[in-house]
């Protein structure tokens, strides 16, 4: 107990001496008077100073990045790397406004998102339960783990030819590669989470009358959630990497294909546009997962 004021004893059977030794008498704080708007704003500023500072510096640094980009491309700097053909930020912006009115560009983006959604969801739906079961039942672990360990180091891109042979359509093979990319990080992190579950919590549940099934649901699963979400975040990142690679190699649609096609068609501004779109989509999807994590694990948010 950090503060003696928090100790309350409704039972009168407690000897007064015990309370006397517990520390000084509880300090009663008077209710704060209603604050004016000015003081509220000041308080908000004090509490959020660190966050505001980070935001301000972040914006400045992004602007500086754009400025450097602009200068390097306007003066066509050649210094080891060649900025001769690199599009300027303004050119990219122009092609962005054009693309926003182009249904084809939006379709590329939507298709990529759909592939990510299907591939990643499948990976999560299979990877998380499999990890939980492998973590709990030794036999399943012993059977599946060696296979997973052999397949895991193969990068998803190396699967492209095999995927094309395995699946009847291109679409399916791309989704399959996206799935593979996110599956292993999700599985491995879930397993890791299971192996770190505090045995004292399992014992505590057991002597409160919990049986195997309840222990699984009430202890192992929630205890592994932080690691499951780490796996989902990493898995989402790898899913994008795999998707873009697969689209560049074998796609006919998708933002990865769009970027590669822009290069073949010598539309340099579109290359940068495709790259930025991939970055924004990747960032957005990992933010979504983080948000979901905070919803599912309210005890972790401060």
């Amino acid at each position: 107990m950090s503060s003696p004021a928090l100790v309350r004893h409704p039972e009168d059977s407690m000897p007064a001496t015990a309370i006397a030794t517990a520390g000084p008498a509880p300090v009663v704080t008077p209710p704060a008077p209603p604050a004016s708007f000015g003081t509220l704003a000041l308080r908000w500023y004090r509490l959020n100073r660190a966050g505001l500072r980070a935001t301000a510096i972040g914006i400045i640094s992004l602007l500086a990045f754009l400025l450097v980009w602009h200068l390097l491309t306007t003066y066509r700097v050649v210094f080891f790397v060649r900025f001769t053909n690199v599009p300027s930020p303004l050119a990219v912006y122009a092609s962005f406004t054009k693309a926003m009115h182009d249904p084809k560009f939006l379709m590329h983006i939507l298709l990529s998102c759909r592939r990510i959604f299907i591939g990643f969801s499948l990976a999560a739906i299979i990877g998380v339960p499999l990890g939980l079961i492998m973590g709990r039942f030794k036999l399943v672990h012993e059977i599946i783990f060696p296979v997973a360990e052999v397949l895991r180091p193969i990068p998803a891109i190396a699967w492209v030819p095999m995927a094309i042979m395995l699946w009847p359509t291109n679409e399916q093979s791309i989704v399959f590669i996206t799935f593979l990319g996110s599956f292993f990080p999700i599985l491995v992190n879930t397993l890791h989470g299971m192996s770190l579950v505090d045995p004292v919590l399992v014992r505590a549940a057991q002597c409160l009358g919990a049986r195997e099934r309840s222990i699984f649901r009430e202890v192992y699963f929630p205890a592994s959630l932080p690691h499951i979400f780490t796996g989902l975040t990493v898995g989402m990142g790898v899913a994008w990497v795999s998707l873009i690679a697969a689209e560049m190699i074998s796609g006919q649609y998708g933002i990865g294909y769009f970027t590669w096609e822009a290069y073949s068609l010598v539309q340099y501004a579109d290359i940068a546009l495709g790259m930025i779109a991939i970055g924004v989509l990747g960032l957005g999807s990992s933010l979504l997962i983080r948000g979901a994590g905070q919803l599912v694990m309210p005890w972790r948010s401060t």
Partner: peptide, 27 residues
């Protein structure tokens, strides 16, 4: 182990993902 024999451990063993009341309700 059984709920007939309650146990308190040296390490804090509350379930971090449950509120105080949910912890007490567990049994």
């Amino acid at each position: 182990p059984s709920a007939e024999r309650g146990m308190v451990f040296q390490q804090y063993s509350l379930f971090p993902w449950k509120t105080v009341r949910e912890n007490v309700e567990f049994g």
